[in-house]
Computed example of a mutant assay.
Amino acid sequence: MTFRAAVAGASGYAGGEIIRLLLAHPEIEIGALTAGGNAGTRLGEHQPHLLPLADRILAETTVDALSGHDVVFLALPHGKSAEIASELGDECVVIDCGADYRLTDPDAWIRWYGGEHAGSWPYGLPELAAQRAAITAARRIAVPGCYPTVSTLTLAPAVAAGLVEPEVVVVAASGTSGAGKSLKPHLLGSEVMGSVSAYGVGGAHRHTPEITQNLSLLSESDVSVSFTPLLVPMPRGILATCSAPLRDGVSAEQIAETYAAAYQNEPFVHVLPSGQWPTTASVLGSNNVTIQAAVDEDARRLIAIGAVDNLTKGTGGAAVQCMNLALGLEETLGLPQTGVAP
């Protein structure tokens, strides 16, 4: 059976990545492609790598344009998905790649995003406890943020097993595509090349409450998260260095066994062999997350490192993975499990 999919926000990075993956999906026919300010232009003007659909004209993002599809992907700015989603019928699966439905706490939404909280949908991280079943039964799914995806998966086994204190530190370096496609002076090539910079310092990044929410679900107590993002001169990818104090008596062997067991049956999360560390290059273009963990014996801290392509498993790949589950398809269908090198 073939399903028909629409993509709203097709001219942006997230929308383009979803389309790239759908073009290789054997059970999907691509229907409406819509945009905001770029409506009326050719897709190829904005996504020249999507040659099979380069001559498609982008429609306005309206309920009429998106109706009549089996699945609708919303790759829209934060705060814009709710007004569209509320008008789409339950007969279609709606997958939001923005933040509108990720947070369960209305006060957290108001603090970090402002405006009215639209509610929360099943959270689109199948590897997180109990989420796979929830996604499979859902008609509405909220795709995680890219930083929360890699941070959560990198820390989850240790937090869930109670091997660390609920006080984690995440320092994650991201490529510039994580900031979206809008023109911003600080993202110009001349500003970024040859430079690494921190931003959202001091708990000011919007993904902090999402990481906190995810890890607190795995712990008997609330987890505190200190998150610092870094901007690095590359187009895509995230490398997250995560740490937390070890509980008394926890050994390196225990950490290794816990991580291996947690992800042994996950198709997209790979714990690397001892001595091998994640790199962003190794996951480029794939739906994989690679993880390695170690124990700093002197500091008595867990050091866990994870790598993800922020546009694939961090956004578009996660959206397609959730679509597969919601439509009753094989979870891995149409999703690349090999990276691109060099």
Results as ranks from 00 to 15, higher is better:
128 L>R: 12
176 T>N: 08
106 P>S: 06
107 D>F: 02
177 S>G: 04
246 L>F: 04
171 V>E: 04
184 K>R: 15
252 A>Q: 07
270 H>Y: 04
134 A>F: 02
279 T>V: 08
293 A>M: 09
144 P>E: 02
150 V>S: 07
31 G>M: 07
171 V>Y: 00
280 T>I: 10
323 M>R: 08
273 P>H: 08
129 A>I: 14
296 D>S: 13
302 L>Q: 15
14 A>K: 02
52 P>C: 08
222 D>M: 05
91 E>F: 00
38 N>A: 15
206 R>M: 15
279 T>W: 09
56 R>Y: 02
103 L>A: 10
305 I>D: 01
268 F>A: 12
216 S>L: 07
140 R>F: 14
296 D>H: 09
268 F>L: 12
277 W>V: 05
72 V>D: 05
261 A>I: 08
248 D>L: 14
314 G>Y: 00
341 A>L: 14
131 Q>A: 15
299 A>T: 10
63 V>M: 03
205 H>C: 12
86 S>Y: 03
316 G>M: 02
33 L>I: 03
101 Y>L: 06
329 L>H: 10
319 A>L: 06
302 L>M: 15
294 A>N: 12
121 W>T: 13
80 K>G: 02
65 A>W: 01
227 F>W: 07
251 S>E: 08
110 I>Q: 14
289 V>Y: 01
38 N>D: 09
232 V>M: 06
189 G>M: 04
297 E>F: 14
279 T>P: 00
191 E>T: 05
233 P>H: 06
68 G>F: 05
319 A>Q: 01
248 D>Y: 10
19 I>K: 01
176 T>Y: 11
99 A>E: 08
96 D>N: 10
58 L>W: 07
264 Q>P: 01
23 L>R: 01
123 Y>P: 11
42 R>H: 11
326 A>F: 08
342 P>G: 12
260 A>Q: 11
234 M>K: 13
123 Y>L: 08
161 A>Q: 06
13 Y>I: 02
41 T>Y: 01
9 G>Y: 02
329 L>Q: 11
195 S>G: 03
10 A>C: 08
253 E>P: 07
257 E>V: 13
30 I>E: 03
61 T>H: 10
241 T>A: 12
141 I>P: 05
172 A>H: 02
144 P>A: 13
265 N>A: 15
192 V>L: 07
256 A>K: 03
190 S>I: 13
